[in-house]
Every structure is written in C-alpha cells, then in structure tokens.
C-alpha cells in the first residue's frame, strides 16, 4: 500500500523548488519592526519546504530499505536453517546406511 510520506514529501519538494525559484527571480523587500529587510519570504520558506520534503522522502526511503533488509535477513536465516537441516541429514545418513546394509547382509 502507498506510503503517505511519499506524496507529502514529493509535493513539498516540488512546491519548495517552485516557491524558492520564483522568489529568487523576483527579489523584494519587506518591513519589520527592526526596519526593512532585503528578503523575499518566498525564498526561505521555499527552501524550508524543500528541506521538509527531502527529509520526509528520505525517512520513507530509509524505512523501505530497512524493511527490505529485514526481509532479506529473514530469507537468509531461513536458507541457512534449511542448509543446516540438510547438513545434519547428510551427516546422519552415512552412519545409518552401513547399519541397514549390515542388517540386509545378515
């Protein structure tokens, strides 16, 4: 099922780029209590949105990789267990075989 962090992350990545890019191309100033600032709110807010989107997608990817790792670890454990089982079967087989052969001889 869809991980909701992907649409959230990608939406903010795209909107962040649009906003910061537009703000960078159209500089403006705005007044604050301390005086006018040569800053367009689009740029810092766009960057913040981009970083939020990036973090959300990254965390989601990380979880996906972890889930895959856990899955492959489980499979490796299963395979090792199967091999170990086969090994024990093989080890026990040569001991049993001569006995049966002996029995059949008798």
């Amino acid at each position: 099922m869809l991980d909701v962090r992907y649409p959230i992350g990608y939406l903010f990545l795209i909107l962040g780029i649009i906003l910061a890019g537009y703000g960078y191309a159209n500089p403006a100033t705005f007044n604050t209590a301390g005086g006018p600032l040569p800053l367009n709110i689009d740029v810092p807010w766009g960057i913040l949105m981009f970083l939020f989107g990036l973090a959300t997608v990254s965390v989601s990817k990380l979880d996906e990789v972890r889930a895959l790792e856990a899955l492959s670890l489980q499979e490796t454990i299963k395979e090792t267990a199967k091999e170990a089982e086969k090994e024990t079967e093989r080890e026990s087989a040569p001991e049993g075989k001569p006995d049966t052969e002996n029995n059949s001889d008798t």
Partner: peptide, 25 residues
C-alpha cells in the same frame, strides 16, 4: 487530510511569523 495538515501549517504559519516580525513582540 494528512497532506492537507502540512499544507495548512506551511500556508498559514508565515502570516503569524511576518506579523510577529512586524510588531516585534
């Protein structure tokens, strides 16, 4: 609704931030 939650935060919060910068305190 989860997506909208973050959009509402990012879309409305700068109003308060700019307002606070405008008034100072």
């Amino acid at each position: 609704e989860a997506i909208q939650f973050f959009l509402i935060i990012f879309g409305l919060l700068p109003l308060s931030i700019i307002g606070m910068m405008r008034f100072g305190s």
